[in-house]
């Protein structure tokens, strides 16, 4: 057990993390300013968590324990045996999901499969009934709230575009910008040239430069989606969760979004939920199919989509 802390996080070696972006700085800033329950830097905290993690499940046989810890150490995010139920209805049941550092993962599944609920669990909006969720350098996501999780480097784009409609495009981005976000620091915050540059580049990237001064409320649906992606980018998160990012976009816009997301792969880890199969095919290497709250299949798109049970789930031969 005591081996775990040392090997849980591989990124100390510098692999995968976007160089020069200072993601570590972000994590530390956020954690210090907001006083989350734990500081991952302290070995005592860390080992106590690991022990607690071990306490819950009976010690597995040696081989499987090793593979499990190894598997954990290769991943930036893992969910194990997560169950969520709403009034008896199981939205997620024993979901297990691993996301690698720098990986772009598509999650697909029919309506109500639990994709959004999975994101809710990762971002602290929904507390699961059981299971574990760990992130990065041994942060227990189930002990943190939305704000801490966001500051720790998990950014999210919602299914329905949710930009701040009364603020201009520029100010939406400024607000999301990676910075200390305590009240006083926010009050005194100024845009330094570096920030300005970052915002301008992001505007350029999401093609909203000409809209910078307009209230976000007047943007088209597709533009709002892009603005939200832009807001996600300026947060410089380590993991990006994108819930249906291309809904409401024109084919040309979709193509551009695909390019954009592919360019992020490697530097960031992404979880992408999408119904547009054309789009998924164009970006996905690994696809996870959720159905009725569980993982139905996982693998490359061609293999997954040829599986009969996946076809069945999609074609609506529901068991109920």
């Amino acid at each position: 057990m005591s081996l775990l802390p040392a090997e849980t996080r591989p990124d100390n070696s510098g692999r995968g993390l976007s160089g020069g972006r200072g993601d570590d700085g972000l994590r530390n800033d956020g954690l210090q300013n907001n006083g989350p329950p734990v500081n991952p830097g302290l070995p005592e905290d860390f080992s106590s968590r690991i022990r607690r993690r071990g306490d819950r499940a009976p010690a597995p046989p040696f081989e499987s324990w090793e593979t499990k810890s190894e598997r954990r150490s290769r991943h930036v995010l893992f969910l194990e045996d997560i169950s969520v139920s709403f009034d008896g209805f199981k939205a997620l049941s024993n979901l297990t999901f691993y996301l690698g550092e720098g990986e772009l993962r598509c999650v697909i599944g029919p309506n109500g499969a639990g994709k959004t609920t999975m994101m809710d669990v990762v971002t602290g909006r929904t507390r699961p009934d059981s299971g574990e969720a760990w992130y990065g350098d041994g942060l227990n996501l189930l002990e943190l709230d939305e704000v801490d999780i966001s500051l720790a480097g998990i950014g999210r784009k919602f299914q329905k575009p949710s930009v701040f409609e009364s603020l201009t495009v520029w100010r939406n981005l400024e607000l999301a910008l990676k910075a200390p976000k305590t009240v006083l620091r926010t009050l005194l915050a100024r845009l330094d040239p570096g920030d300005r540059d970052c915002l301008e580049k992001t505007l350029e990237l999401v093609r909203l430069t000409d809209q910078a001064g307009k209230p976000a409320g007047v943007l088209s649906h597709g533009q709002k989606q892009w603005l939200e992606i832009g807001m996600l980018l300026v947060q410089k998160p380590r993991i990006l969760l994108l819930d249906e990012p291309v809904a409401g976009m024109t084919p040309a816009e979709i193509e551009r979004t695909a390019e954009l997301l592919l360019s992020l792969e490697g530097g960031h880890s992404l979880i992408l939920v999408e119904h547009d199969m054309e789009f998924v095919r164009s970006v996905a290497k690994t696809v996870t199919v959720l159905h009725q709250g569980r993982v139905l299949a996982e693998g490359d798109m061609a293999r997954v989509s040829s599986l009969p049970e996946v076809m069945e789930a999609y074609l609506g031969l529901e068991e109920e």
Binding site: G30, N34, T123, R125, D145, E146, V147, S150, L151, G155, R156, F158, S162, F164, E165, S166, L167, R171, E174, L175, A176, K181, T182, V183, T186, L187, L188, A189, M231, Q235
Partner: peptide, 24 residues
């Protein structure tokens, strides 16, 4: 007009969303 003012408007328009970009 400070950034806190932006956070105030954001909290007024969509409180939950504001939390998800890191503001308490």
């Amino acid at each position: 007009v400070s950034r806190l003012g932006l956070a105030m408007s954001a909290a007024r328009d969509n409180e939950n969303r504001t939390r998800f970009i890191g503001y308490r």
